[in-house]
């Protein structure tokens, strides 16, 4: 029973459907910060009825395993660097999650980025140089975390 909405969705073209087009995306590292804080709060409650759900537990394990930046300050810096360029929320988070090393990798992982950066006339503000600069900045943050 596939819903009809999924037919139009395609993340590689940034088509996320009406509900998520303007929604705020979160990087794994950001989710880790949120969930860990919430988990700590729950642990402090004496009430054993506050069992965390399986979805919560699995998500927490997942983001802990795959978050590239452990330090909340570094996470904030990453968000800043990525937001400086005219990227869509979704693109910001894919790059923040997967941390591509090269321009080619970044373009392969974020096809919508490749499409826009093809024209070098700087119309919508993204060029190969800017992407490379951005990746270099991210690598620096990672190094000094």
């Amino acid at each position: 029973m596939a819903a009809t909405t999924t037919e139009e969705e395609d993340a590689s073209e940034l088509k996320l459907g009406a509900d998520f087009e303007k929604a705020k995306c979160l990087m794994n590292s950001e989710v880790a910060v949120i969930l860990e804080r919430k988990y700590e709060q729950l642990q402090q409650l004496p009430d054993p009825a506050n069992q965390v759900s399986q979805v919560f537990e699995k998500s927490l394990q997942y983001v802990k395993r795959f978050s590239r930046y452990q330090n909340p300050n570094a996470v904030k810096q990453v968000r800043e660097v990525l937001s400086r360029n005219q990227l869509a929320e979704f693109e910001v988070c894919v790059i923040g999650n997967l941390c591509p090393d090269t321009l080619e990798e970044a373009k392969a992982l974020v096809p919508s980025l490749a499409k826009r950066s093809k024209s070098d006339d700087d119309e919508d503000g993204i060029t190969d140089e800017k992407i490379e600069q951005m990746l270099a900045d991210l690598a620096t943050i990672k190094k000094f975390e």
Binding site: E9, A11, S12, E13, L26, V31, R65, V94, N97, L98
Partner: peptide, 15 residues
């Protein structure tokens, strides 16, 4: 709330 929603065409890491 924080939700997890997979999309077609999305690239992600998994175990």
């Amino acid at each position: 709330c924080v939700v997890f929603r997979p999309f077609r065409g999305e690239i992600l890491e998994s175990v």
